[in-house]
Structure formats: structure tokens, C-alpha cells
């Protein structure tokens, strides 16, 4: 490397670093992109694949008829148990339904498989528990909120 090259190199190097400094400065002047999480929730889109819920028909009864379509569709056996009543009413309805959140891949194949639109994945993404049993949901904990009643 000749002397002049070295000099030019040093100057250009310094300039390139100054350029970088300017980039960080302009970014410091931009509005912040992070959110203050627990106080400022990120908007979750409607189609979000979160916690599973069971929907109820207009009569308030579960839509699920325990047809086992979701169980068969599930790739990871996250829906191990479904039992219906013995057709006491006009149609069969689910009595026992277990969803294991710790096994769920949240792929939505069960929702697609359901012929009655009885289940849905919701926007609830924070599924936490203190032990494994807390992540196994039975029918009582799977009932959808009141506004989700009619599909």
C-alpha cells in the first residue's frame, strides 16, 4: 500500500463511520416502534390462531356434535377425548371435550375439518398455566365468550 493510498483509506474509513453515525442519529429521531407491552397491547388480527373455543348456537347449546372430525384432523393429538350424550335431544351434543394446549400446533386443521363451525381459534394468544394440568382444557374452559355465540 502506498502512502497516498493509506491516507485516502483513512479518510474514507472515517467518512464511512460518520455515515453510519448519521444513520443511527436519524433513527433516533424517528418515532419508536416498540410497544409498552402489558399496558399497551399489540392489536391482534381477527384471523389469529390462538386459544380454541367452542361456539354455541342461538339456543345456547353447543354446536359440537362430537363427530370426531377435529380429532381425526389433528396432527398432534391435541384433542384426545371427545364424548357426546346419547341423543337425548334431537341431535347429539358434546359432553366431554378435551383440548391439550401444550400439544397444539395452532395449525387450524381442526377448525377446517369441523362440519358444523363449532370450534374456532381465537385471538387469545397468552395461554399460560402453573403446571401441565392447567394447559389441558375441558369443555367448561373452552366455552366461547358471549359475543362469540353466533357465528
Amino acid at each position: 500500500m502506498t502512502r497516498t493510498n493509506l491516507f485516502v483509506d483513512v479518510v474514507l474509513s472515517a467518512l464511512s463511520i460518520v455515515k453510519g453515525l448519521m444513520v443511527t442519529l436519524t433513527n433516533a429521531l424517528r418515532p419508536r416502534v416498540t410497544r409498552n407491552h402489558p399496558f399497551q397491547k399489540t392489536p391482534i388480527p381477527e384471523v389469529w390462531r390462538g386459544r380454541l373455543v367452542h361456539l354455541r348456537g342461538e339456543d345456547g347449546r353447543l354446536r359440537c356434535t362430537a363427530c370426531l372430525a377435529c380429532q381425526k384432523a389433528c396432527p398432534s393429538h391435541a384433542i384426545p377425548t371427545i364424548q357426546g350424550d346419547d341423543k337425548k335431544g334431537k341431535e347429539k351434543r358434546a359432553q366431554v371435550y378435551v383440548w391439550d394446549a401444550s400439544r397444539c400446533l395452532f395449525c387450524g386443521l381442526c377448525v377446517e375439518a369441523c362440519p358444523f363451525d363449532a370450534i374456532r381459534l381465537t385471538r387469545e394468544y397468552s395461554i399460560v398455566g402453573e403446571d401441565r394440568a392447567d394447559l389441558i382444557f375441558d369443555l367448561n374452559r373452552l366455552l366461547g365468550p358471549a359475543e362469540g355465540e353466533t357465528a
Binding site: 483509506d9 474509513s13 464511512s16 463511520i17 455515515k19 453510519g20 448519521m22 444513520v23 443511527t24 433513527n27
Partner: peptide, 12 residues
């Protein structure tokens, strides 16, 4: 372009 300015051109 910004990444190029801060990183690609940087001598280090």
C-alpha cells in the same frame, strides 16, 4: 439503502 450506509460501506 440505510443498511448499506450503516453497514455495507463501513470500513470495519
Amino acid at each position: 439503502d440505510e443498511y448499506d450506509r450503516i453497514l455495507t460501506g463501513n470500513r470495519i
